[in-house]
Every structure is written in structure tokens, then in C-alpha cells.
Design a protein around this nucleic acid. Structure first.
Lengths: 129, 129
DNA sequence: CATGACGCTGAGAATCATTGTCAAATCCGC
DNA sequence: GCGGATTTGACAATGATTCTCAGCGTCATG
């Protein structure tokens, strides 16, 4: 039996931040925001909460070029991201054609249990060069 | 003027390993292989060599789920990878449709300096479930 | 509402890939 | 062969993430 996660102040605080944020943010950034708001939450707890949320598919996670893991509250269902390198602003995008293409390629080469990662990075219109 | 890189034993050794390997390997793995072959090369040097090669687009780099950077000698030109999770065997694939799709999506949303990452992971035909 | 079991928290230590440091070794044009 | 710039490598340092573990908070239950 899987235990239901407990409803703690800290977990609620992390979820609240994610709801407010528009784009992707690292665990450390979220920790900083919490500190600024006076909602003190331990760094370890922020990491753990995000892991739990990511496993439950309540948030999406991806790595930036520096290898940091970034988190964001997203809509349900399979989708990809168009992410601003500078401000983190994110647009969710869908690419049914791409999904089919990837599956076809994998099948042609005899691969099974197929998954794929696809993210688009750029600089958004409101960020300076 | 950019200085031409020097032709050192260590750099040649790293390149030789990459030529022998079929799939992606981490800097540490390459360092281990070098050690086993008796071609002692410092770990820092392996990292530096791979960085240089990656910048020169002579090898491709990607991150696995653990956040490690993996390197592989690839053909020239833009392409993506179909990678076996189990044995690392890699097939290079092209997807002109995907490239166009990604650029179009980015343009529609006012993003510039666009790049994308796309990798397909699966289990290849010769690996057990 | 009190209780107890057990998950959750947090401060700090530990981990681990990667990068920085810098003196000594190596290249390479001359 | 020389000399100066580049490269190397042992080791320290960094930085994100995970681990540890004693104490706290939750919550089903009485």
C-alpha cells in the first residue's frame, strides 16, 4: 500500500510558489523565493517536495544547459516546452507529428519501450539580447 | 586568430577511444578505458579534451537521466539520436520535419536564437527486457 | 481532545561530476 | 636544439543534489 503524502505547511508552500511562477525554476530558486517571503523551508525539503511532485507528474522537470534541474507546474498530458533561456518564460507546445515521427523511427530500428525528450530553447521577445 | 590545438599524445588517445566506441560514454568511463589500456591520461585532461572536441563539433554531447554528460563521435551535420538505455547502442537519425516544426513554433512565439534538444530512448532489439 | 506511530523536516555532512589551480612537462616554429 | 606558449596532471575547490538522523508535526484512532 502506498502511503498518502502528508499535508504539511512546507509542501503547501512549495506548491504555492509553483502556482505563482510562470516559467521553470530550480530548487534553489524556489528555496530563495520562499525565504524572501518569510516562509522558511529547508533546502532539503524543497528538493524532496519537488521530487515527489515530479514523480506524481504534478510538475514537469527538465535540465538546462548547466545541468540544473528546473521545475514547473504544467498542464496534464504529454507536451513539450519552448523555454526562454534568459527569463525562463515557458510556452507549452504540442507536436503530434513529432510524436509519430519518433515512434516510427524507433519501430523501424527495432527499439521498444520508447520515450523521447524534446525541448526548444531561445530568447523570448521581452528579453534583451 | 584562433590558436591551432596542439597534437598531444593525450588528445590522440582520447580521440582513439571515441573512434572505437559505438555508443555514448561519460568522461569518467573514457578515463577508465584509457587507464585499462595503459594509456594514462589525467582525468582533467580527458574532460578538457572532450570539451574542446565538443566545441569543435567533432563529438556530440548529451545528458543522461542522471545528469552526466555523455560523448560520442558522430557524423557531421545536425542530427538526433536513438539511444538504447541498456547497451548504449546509438542510431543517428534525421528529422527535417521536426526541425522546421521547432523553428516555426519558436517564430510564432517571438523567440530568437533558437536551439532544440531531441533524443529518443528505448531498448534495442538485441537487449533483453 | 489526547495519544501514539510514523512520516516529514532541517541543519549540516557527504557525494559526485565537473572545473579551477599552478608548477612541471611537452610541443612546435624557428 | 631553443624558447616561449600551450598542455598536462595531481589535487583542491565548486556546486547541485542527496544523505543522515534526531526531533517535530500529522492524522487516524480511541
Amino acid at each position: 500500500m502506498v502511503e498518502a503524502p502528508r499535508n504539511t505547511r512546507q509542501r503547501r508552500a512549495v506548491v504555492a510558489i509553483l502556482e505563482d511562477l510562470d516559467g521553470f525554476a530550480s530548487a534553489q530558486e524556489i528555496h530563495d523565493i520562499l525565504k524572501k517571503r518569510g516562509e522558511s523551508v529547508g533546502l532539503s525539503t524543497v528538493y524532496r517536495s519537488l521530487q515527489v511532485l515530479a514523480e506524481a507528474a504534478e510538475v514537469d522537470a527538465l535540465r538546462n544547459d548547466d545541468g540544473e534541474v528546473l521545475y514547473r507546474q504544467c498542464s496534464a498530458g504529454h507536451h513539450h516546452h519552448l523555454v526562454c533561456r534568459s527569463c525562463g518564460r515557458t510556452v507549452e507546445v504540442e507536436g503530434p507529428t513529432v510524436e509519430r515521427w519518433a515512434d516510427k523511427i524507433a519501430a523501424e530500428n527495432g527499439f521498444r519501450d520508447v520515450a523521447h525528450t524534446l525541448e526548444i530553447f531561445g530568447t523570448c521577445a521581452s528579453c534583451p539580447s
